[in-house]
Amino acid sequence: MKDLYSKLGIDRGASAGEVQAALEIKPELSDCATILLHSEKRALYDSTHSTLKMIGELRFRLGLDTGRSWFLEHCPDYAFRKTAAKASQSPGKDAIADTAARLNPAPQQPKSVASTPPAQSKGLAKWLLPAVLLIIGVVVIAMLLR
């Protein structure tokens, strides 16, 4: 699913005349214009467009913008991260590289399950340093007492 409005550089509510005008600037996009100029096709396109916009936002906010249900060939135009990056111009390449790195189609796991092992190892690491220091301290004291 492509974002035809952004491809043509027009607004969601654009009139047939505006679609025609955009087509004159970008004649190679005649397929897009054909869909938007046909009322039945446009109605179906529009409802899919607004639903995907909402899902894109929701998936971004819930951290669910990866996985095989979303990065199908249909959805990249509706990835909120990408549009947000484009709009602000600042994270640019990084955000896109980050998105690409997360294209991993691994199935969604419950967050709590996924985050438990690192949390446990962190807890261990926290105790490891004081324990080592304590042992060294005891050894040094023992050697001094000799």
């Binding site: 699913m1 492509k2 974002d3 035809l4 397929d31 897009c32 054909t34 869909i35 096709k41 179906l44 396109y45 899919t48 199908l72 249909h74």
Partner: peptide
Amino acid sequence: SQPGDPSSM
């Protein structure tokens, strides 16, 4: 099924 793609002719 896979979702359809109404942006494609």
